[in-house]
Each structure stands twice: as C-alpha cells, then as structure tokens.
Simulated assay, not measured.
Amino acid sequence: MEELFELKDLLLAGHIDDALLLVEELTEMSKDDKLNKIFSFGIIVLLHLIKRQAEKRSTRSWETSITNAIRQIQRTNKRRKAKENYLKPAELQETLEDAYSSALRQASLEAFEGKYEAEELGKMVNKKAIIDETMDLIYS
C-alpha cells in the first residue's frame, strides 16, 4: 500500500520516469506473488497424486484438495484483462517439477503412515505420470 502512495506522490511531482520504475517493481512483485501461489497449490496437487499413486487408493478429502488446488492454479495463472496466462504450459510444467520434491517429502510423512523416506516413496511412483496428470487436470 505504501508503494501506491509513493507512486501518487511521484506522479503529482511530475517524476514520470521514477513513477514508471515503481510501476515495474509493483508489476514484478505482483507476478512473483502469483508464481508463489501457483507453486504452493502445485505442491498440494502433487502431494495427493503421489499418495494416491503410491497407496493405490484415494479419499474424498484428497480428491477435494486436488480439485480445489487445480481451480486455484487455473484462477491464479489467468491474466484477466490480457486473456492469457502468466505461465505458459512449459513454464507451468517446470514449476511443477520444482515443486515435486517438496510434495514428495510431504507425501512421505503422510503416505503409509510415514513409514517410508521420500527417496523410498519416490521409487514407488512415476514422477512423469504424476506431473503429466497434473498438467492434464489444469488444462482440462
């Protein structure tokens, strides 16, 4: 909020170049926030898909979490006025691949009552299939 007051002051003072720099900074901050949200929701989807594949079962709670997180990714990624997405499919896939290790660590605490370490659980699932499924859910 403080940045908006600063922007107003710069514009009123006629410091257009400084105001434009601040607008760029605000734009980057907004985009970073959206990317962080997509990453976090990606972890949630991946976590439940890892557990579902490893345990060969699902629960209504997991399915609800998957659905809600997918909707949030879709909503956060959408640029309202530009009618396009912040992340293109290849960038989104890269974000999911980055989030996978965090999701796997979390899943190792939850799947099979925490019996397996992340590396062991990782050998029980197909990473590519899980990321592909996540991408399919996001774009379907």
Results as ranks from 00 to 15, higher is better:
E63Q: 14
E63I: 12
E63L: 14
T64V: 13
S65V: 07
I66T: 07
N68Q: 15
N68C: 08
N68D: 15
A69Q: 05
A69R: 03
A69Y: 05
I70T: 12
I70C: 03
I70E: 11
R71V: 10
R71S: 14
Q72H: 07
Q72F: 05
Q72D: 09
Q72G: 00
I73P: 01
Q74Y: 02
Q74V: 10
R75Y: 08
R75D: 04
R75M: 02
T76F: 01
T76R: 01
N77V: 01
N77Y: 05
N77K: 04
N77E: 04
R79W: 14
R80W: 15
R80I: 08
R80C: 00
K81M: 10
K81G: 08
K81Q: 11
K81C: 02
A82Q: 15
A82M: 14
A82C: 03
K83Q: 15
N85V: 07
Y86E: 03
Y86P: 00
Y86C: 00
L87C: 02
L87H: 10
L87Q: 08
K88Q: 14
K88F: 15
K88T: 13
P89A: 07
P89S: 08
P89N: 09
A90L: 13
A90D: 15
E91Q: 14
L92V: 08
L92N: 10
E94N: 13
T95C: 03
T95Q: 05
T95A: 02
T95F: 09
T95M: 03
T95W: 12
L96K: 02
L96N: 06
L96H: 08
E97K: 07
D98S: 05
A99M: 03
Y100C: 03
Y100T: 02
S101I: 11
S101Y: 12
S102V: 07
A103P: 04
A103S: 08
A103E: 10
L104Y: 09
L104D: 01
L104V: 03
Q106P: 04
Q106C: 10
Q106A: 14
A107T: 12
S108T: 10
S108N: 13
S108C: 11
L109K: 15
L109S: 07
E110H: 14
A111G: 05
A111D: 09
A111R: 11
A111P: 08
F112T: 01
F112N: 03
E113M: 00
G114L: 00
K115N: 06
K115R: 13
Y116G: 02
Y116F: 11
Y116E: 07
E117R: 06
A118T: 08
A118S: 14
A118C: 09
E119Y: 11
